[in-house]
Design a protein around this nucleic acid. Structure first.
Lengths: 343, 343
DNA sequence: ACAGAAAATGATTGCGCTGTCATTTTTCGT
DNA sequence: ACGAAAAATGACAGCGCAATCATTTTCTGT
């Protein structure tokens, strides 16, 4: 329905502002998007008109006309997992005070769901995309490869990244933790892991290889479950570990929830930590260092990953191909605390 | 630039599908949006054409033409806070298998930032909006009141909700917890709170009123900080509490992070819980019940809030005015565990 | 003061879709 | 088998903005 007369309730448009300011619509558009190419005089008139009318641009119209948006898509496998909460914080800090805003997609550890989200996000013509793994479906990967916007893959660092990547060597991090247990004199280390997504699986494999190479591998000390990770699950897994391998003297947990749960279960069983059981955690979220005893952990650079990812993305959006180092290894750091410190 | 010949790389449009299927564009549009009003024959042709061309609708064009989107905005004050992670989960479960998708905005406990996000979200013509408080700025509130879409305010339950609301009585919940401490025989209860956003402030006030009414109020046992809540902060606050009121015999923590931190600090100080110090937590996230000793807590219905909020919103989007009970009180439940159970 | 370059501004058109209303086809009762 | 009602389909225009290219204004050096 073509409506010549504008109803009062309608939001003002560019044209309204233009008329109010006595300039053309395109000048208003330019005043908003690149004020530096508009004369001082026009800019002031337009800004005043925008103020008077309470004008807000319509992102849909802008997206349609320009074929792009100010949206940055961020795909994470979980919102409950504190690991990604930290990544998010890093990302948010980086978009702050830019014209971009972040849209989060939660694919709940389902690659298929992730593929759907990639398709959905791309249909919205985002300015850029951050994805939390390198484990896309083949079709998901193809979509990323042919995406018309820059893409950053975070967390892992693996061959054949689609465009850019920021992360650290997860296997090296696990190895570092396992080595530490050996250094502390533990000889029968176990491994606890939940969820068993591809990344968890790779870490487990890293542990297996390391343990085997050092002659301390015991398959009955490796306890996993496909269920989600939680503090309660950490307790259950430790329980299972002790029932099938009572001689276990240390345990490497695939994340902090499990480690805290294991610590509590040890306490309930009156198993002394670190004397009878060493506990080493992975990620090192805030709570771990405040446990009693404080948990030794491999700290992963989650927040920095978020920061660097958004940094690279924004640079690449500003000018395609401008980012030199397209693959950043941020490393990991072993935080030695009481839970493995035995006399 | 009008381009008559379509470049290969371009995404197919409705018109392309229409031509491929031998129908008009509007029929394709209808096949996608309301297949029931299209004939079996046409629908099949269109679906085949969509499949062949790999067509994906352009949401920007759709938004522009129809003046609405399938986006549901969800404003939360924090993504780190597990409380909102649970709410999110409830919401996500509800939009699953609908045509809607959730866009999250994080205003980091800043009402001003929240106002900006409300404005930004509204400019995108969302189908509905969920906001996590009743503490908007006056302008933020005005925006919500005049929003052209349904709005649900969650968590709190207060007079003068803008449109719909789901939550529980936070003050009643605090009172329940405080009453429990008295019932257990604790007579000098303290209160620990961080962040001190308006909601935390109201809970503190609730505690004050209750304690005063029961003759157990001690202002020096109320320890707060404007800094964010964390496990470490729980330890610090307890430390401060003991230094300025050593006779404190119980502590009500404004959330689980603080409670866990307080528990650990008590352990470090060799203060026996629950004998010398009772600890009661607020919210009851998963980890609390697995601590040693397990933490007594007022469980808040976070996930259910998310579920009910999205339920109401979707019903209201489907048909304005169709929701009967526009203000739901989901209550709270005291979970009594070891941290307050003394002989 | 003037030509030429640079800066500022504007007219036009189309992005891809859906609302509206008109037209065609099908269905149904008698 | 016929007309009326209902169902299905289509033509057209416009949503609000930005890309393009043309035009006007301002600035520069001599």
């Amino acid at each position: 329905m073509g409506r010549k007369t504008r109803m009062i309730s309608d939001r003002p448009t560019l044209a309204d502002v233009a008329q109010e300011a006595g300039v053309s619509a395109i000048t208003v558009s330019r005043t908003i998007r690149s004020p530096e190419i508009v004369s001082e005089r026009a800019r002031r008139k337009v800004e005043a008109a925008i103020e008077r009318l309470g004008y807000t641009p319509d992102p849909a119209a802008s997206a349609l006309a320009s074929r792009t948006t100010s949206t940055i898509g961020l795909l994470v496998p979980s919102l409950t997992n504190n690991v990604f909460a930290d990544v998010l914080r890093g990302v948010y800090e980086g978009v702050e005070s830019t014209r971009f805003f972040v849209q989060i997609g939660n694919y709940r550890y389902s690659a298929l769901h992730e593929e759907g989200l990639i398709r959905n996000f791309l249909s919205q013509k985002p300015a850029g995309l951050i994805v939390s793994s390198t484990d896309q479906t083949p079709e998901g990967r193809r979509l990323l490869e042919t995406a018309p916007c820059p893409v950053v893959q975070i967390m892992d660092l693996r061959d054949g990244a689609v465009d850019m990547s920021v992360g650290f060597d997860q296997v090296a991090a696990v190895r570092k933790a396992a080595q530490h247990l050996l250094d502390c004199g533990y000889r029968r280390p176990g491994f606890l892991s939940a969820r068993m997504d591809p990344r968890a699986q790779r870490r487990l494999n890293g542990f297996r290889d390391f343990a085997a190479a050092n002659g301390v591998l015991g398959e009955d000390r490796i306890i996993t479950t496909p269920q989600p990770s939680s503090v309660g699950m950490g307790g259950h897994l430790l329980e299972q570990l002790f029932s099938q391998a009572p001689d276990t003297d240390a345990v490497l947990c695939n994340n902090d929830d499990l480690a805290v749960g294991a610590l509590m279960e040890a306490k309930r069983r009156h198993v002394a930590v670190p004397e009878q059981l060493g506990i080493c955690s992975y990620n090192d979220i805030e709570m771990s260092r405040h446990m009693v005893p404080a948990l030794t952990a491999v700290a992963t650079p989650r927040r920095e990953i978020g920061q660097r990812a958004i940094e690279m993305l924004l640079a690449e959006i500003a000018e395609r191909g401008s980012v030199r180092d397209r693959h950043l290894d941020l490393g990991s750091e072993l935080m030695i605390r009481e839970s493995t410190r035995r006399a």
